[in-house]
Nucleic acid binder design. Structure first.
Length: 215
DNA sequence: GACCAGGCACATC
DNA sequence: GATGTGCATGGT
């Protein structure tokens, strides 16, 4: 198991090189993106982020000062826009109440405690919380997503319906807790999941094709 | 015109 | 704990 997870990383890293995630200018932009990209393609999120930037309100204060309906209009392209407006609002409210919008202060909270706090916010589930922690705050947590699940189950390493926590533990118990490693590994899984693993015929050109058990 | 995309909350069994 | 449903846009 350990060997397999490490092998997958080495193969992908060699084939595709560093991915330099997350594509954003500031940690706060990462966090907004993490919420907006829930079950949504990144392309649609980019449009929404651009609109927020154009308005000059891509900041905790900026979002907080906006009416919910107005915010929803700006992030329309990212889908589920009414719900996501709520989620962004509750997130910036949390930043204000707990840390006075100070992300350095946020970063000083011990990892598991901070993760618990994030999960307490309505609209922040495990993947979004972990993305905020890893890509926004550079904390060593592994981000699990649909791609990680699909790739590992296709190769017979996990069962398709393994829980989020089980999948996360698998990575975290078998890899060194290195924020940079977790960052690159997740980004590489997304790259492969997106471009190759969506349909089985393309497995021929995948660098992982020689791993056991591709259907 | 389906089908999918870097989920989550909530109801129900 | 597992399973089903609503939420919504833009690209293929």
């Amino acid at each position: 198991m350990k060997d397999q997870l490490q092998m997958i990383y080495r193969i992908l890293r060699k084939a595709y090189g560093p991915q330099h995630w997350w594509p954003a200018e500031t940690p706060f932009e990462v966090m907004v993106g993490a919420i907006l990209t829930q079950n949504t393609s990144w392309k649609n999120v980019e449009i929404a982020i651009r609109r927020l930037k154009e308005r000059g309100i891509l900041s905790p204060e900026g979002i907080r000062g906006l009416k919910k309906e107005e915010l929803a209009g700006l992030i329309r392209s990212s889908g589920y826009f009414r719900i996501k407006a709520d989620r962004l609002k509750s997130f910036v409210h949390f930043l204000h109440e707990e840390f006075d919008e100070n992300l350095a202060k946020m970063r000083r909270i011990p990892l598991q405690r901070l993760r618990g706090m994030l999960l307490g916010i309505k609209g922040i589930g495990p993947e979004t919380a972990d993305s905020i922690l890893l890509y926004g705050l550079r904390k060593p947590v592994f981000v699990v997503d649909a791609y990680a699940r699909r790739i590992l189950s296709r190769h017979g390493i996990i069962r398709e319906k393994a829980s989020y926590e089980a999948l996360e533990s698998l990575f975290m118990e078998n890899l060194v807790h290195d924020e940079k490693l977790f960052n690159e590994y997740h980004a590489l899984l997304v790259l492969v999941g997106k471009t190759l693993c969506r349909n089985v015929p393309k497995c021929d050109s995948c660098p992982l094709k020689n791993l056991p058990k591709i259907p």
